[in-house]
């Protein structure tokens, strides 16, 4: 039976994948451990000129905090890959 090449990953990619997963876990742990500190570093929502009272104004949440957290999580693979690539480049030099 003819084997499909892409089923088998080269050794190097496996190491990168493992490193990637470790970074993701580390990132999740760092966010989890510092969740409150990150939240408090964001400013409380201001009642601006139009005097809107929405959820974040009434309950005192920073307006962009969850946007920041979710987008940071979603886009972190790009940052992690960049870090891995840089680290590998530095080591190979």
């Amino acid at each position: 039976m003819k084997k499909n090449k892409s089923i088998y990953m080269p050794q190097e990619i496996r190491v990168i994948l493992l490193e990637f997963v470790l970074y993701v876990i580390l990132e999740a742990l760092v966010i989890f451990a510092n969740f409150r500190a990150i939240r408090e570093s964001f400013p409380t929502t201001e009642i601006a000129k139009n005097k809107i009272i929405g959820y974040s104004h009434y309950y005192g949440y920073p307006f962009y905090f969850d946007t920041f957290i979710i987008f940071f999580l979603l886009l972190s693979p790009i940052i992690i890959c960049l870090l891995i690539a840089l680290r590998r480049k530095l080591i190979s030099k």
């Binding site: 990619i13 969850d66 790009i78 960049l82």
Partner: peptide
Amino acid sequence: YLHSLRSLSGIFNIAVLFLSISYLSIRTFF
């Protein structure tokens, strides 16, 4: 706050998006 992480469909959407961005990043970089 973070309501998407409390609903099944929200978690599904975020997980799939995370997987896709991870796939594209690893593919492009390596």
